[in-house]
């Protein structure tokens, strides 16, 4: 009897040892992979602190005294700060609008079986498939008719439109996840639908709403094609402002990298903070 348990214990011990070795191997491989994926971004950030000839030497400069000149020139000379401000404004307001309108559609879809509901949801999603290049001229004509061209609001409207399918789909999933019983309980207490939505449903779904907001924000923040063509005087967004350093005369790599770092940083911080919910968001609720 003891032989059997002993053998089992040895087997278990061996397995644990193998397991431990495997953990180390996995850790190392994962570290290397992470370095591969992080490498280019680290390179960008380090280049942002280099001076011209360090950035262009045939043998890469790895150790150097960092300079803030690039950031200074990006902010002072080319007013990249105002481009960042425009980006923050457009991305934030379009996110808020998309959330408001999206929640309006998503909540009933999640709570009620409506005839043709699937068709409606699919139609909304299919809007995302249309390549932006297809609709840019008619969209511009429409915006012109309501007098929005040349202002940042044209981008706000378009980004709201662009993000609405996303928010509808995400929020629908998040709302559907919430047990109906809690809402029902509040009805019994005499609360109205509206109040129960704002008082109960929304707070409970908040993590999901945050993830949705973050995704919508990232898409609006990174968008280039519409911004490039539609922005008016003084309403450049950050990705468009960045292309100013690619002139026919020279490509100002160090400035590009400094501006690129500034563009990436806020969304990265947001993504890290809401990482857990981001997964749900990215998959349109395919994974819980």
């Amino acid at each position: 009897m003891s032989a059997v348990t002993h053998e089992a214990a040895v087997r278990r011990g061996r397995r644990r040892q193998r397991q431990r070795r495997l953990t180390v191997v996995r850790g190392v491989v994962a570290g290397v992979m992470t370095l591969l994926f992080m490498g280019p971004i680290l390179w960008m950030i380090s280049t942002a602190f280099k001076v011209g000839n360090q950035a262009f030497s045939a043998t890469p400069t790895i150790f150097f005294a960092p300079t803030f000149d690039n950031f200074r020139s990006v902010f002072v000379k080319s007013q990249f700060g105002s481009a960042l401000a425009t980006s923050i404004f457009t991305a934030t307001s379009s996110t808020i609008l998309a959330l408001l309108l999206g929640a309006g559609i998503a909540y009933p879809l999640a709570r009620r079986r409506v005839r043709g509901q699937q068709h409606l949801a699919f139609w909304i999603l299919s809007l995302r498939i249309v390549p932006p290049i297809v609709v840019i001229i008619p969209l511009f004509l429409m915006l012109r008719n309501v007098g929005l061209t040349g202002s940042v609001w044209s981008l706000v409207v378009i980004y709201t439109y662009m993000n609405l399918p996303l928010t509808v789909w995400l929020l629908r999933g998040f709302f559907a996840d919430l047990p109906v019983e809690i809402e029902e309980a509040s009805f019994v207490d005499g609360a109205s639908r509206l109040r129960s939505f704002f008082g109960i449903t929304l707070p409970l779904a908040l993590p999901g709403v945050v993830a949705t907001a973050l995704l919508a924000f990232i898409f609006a923040w990174n968008e280039f094609l519409f911004a490039n063509i539609l922005t008016g005087a003084n309403t450049r967004t950050a990705p468009v402002g960045l292309t100013e350093y690619v002139t026919p005369v020279s490509v100002e790599w160090t400035n590009i990298m400094a501006a690129g770092t500034l563009v990436v940083l806020p969304v990265w911080i947001g993504a890290l903070a809401a990482q857990r919910y981001l997964v749900r968001g990215l998959t349109l609720g395919a994974v819980k």
């Binding site: 994962a30 992470t34 971004i41 990174n222 292309t243 690619v246 690129g260």
Partner: peptide, 20 residues
């Protein structure tokens, strides 16, 4: 590591193109 690994996908495509 996981937090660092997801970084590439939040980078604006314009920045990605120029960086590469």
């Amino acid at each position: 590591l996981r937090a660092l690994l997801i970084l590439p996908m939040v980078v604006a495509p314009v920045v990605v193109g120029l960086l590469w």
